[in-house]
């Protein structure tokens, strides 16, 4: 049982740096061959300041760097072995590129269960802005599911 007091927890803001090598590895992993994601000169030729981050790139990067949230979820009773990704939403305001320094503001949304507690849900919301000028880049909501028994 995950402690419902987790709901609404806000975490300290943290920064993430978007790196060329990380974008290239992500692109390679998903079989992406479009040069906007791989070749700085091609990206610039299409009006981008540097390599373009693919649409879902920031989801993983923001989550990886948010060690506070995962620590809080595990401390509240969430078990990594029972964790599934239930839902993911990303709203886009602006592209992200290699070289960007981004600021993440993350908080836990609702914590709830279904099927008499067999499935527990934790919402994690992350707003990402450009650390240099405060422009909104993306806002993201992840729904994490903990499967407590075989269902």
């Amino acid at each position: 049982m995950i402690d419902r007091q987790l709901a609404g927890t806000k975490f300290p803001d943290y920064n993430i740096g978007v790196e060329r090598s990380q974008i290239r590895l992500f692109a390679k992993a998903i079989g992406e061959t479009d040069p906007r994601y791989l070749d700085v000169y091609a990206a610039r030729g299409q009006g981008h300041p540097d390599l373009l981050a693919p649409p879902t790139f920031l989801v993983g990067l923001a989550a990886t760097e948010n060690t506070d949230a995962m620590a809080a979820i595990f401390k509240a009773g969430g078990d990594l072995r029972r964790l599934l990704h239930g839902e993911q939403a990303v709203n886009y305001f602006r592209d992200a590129h290699a070289g960007d320094e981004l600021r993440c503001a993350a908080r836990i949304g609702q914590v709830y269960d279904k099927r008499d507690g067999e499935l527990e849900f934790v919402e994690l919301q992350t707003d990402v802005t450009d650390a240099a000028n405060g422009q909104r880049v993306v806002s993201m909501t992840s729904v994490l599911v903990f499967k407590n028994r075989q269902v």
Binding site: V59, G60, L61, T64
Partner: peptide
């Protein structure tokens, strides 16, 4: 393995 590195999701599952 590549996606674990590329996305930063290192969940061993």
């Amino acid at each position: 393995a590549l996606f674990a590195g590329g996305s930063g999701d290192h969940n061993p599952i």
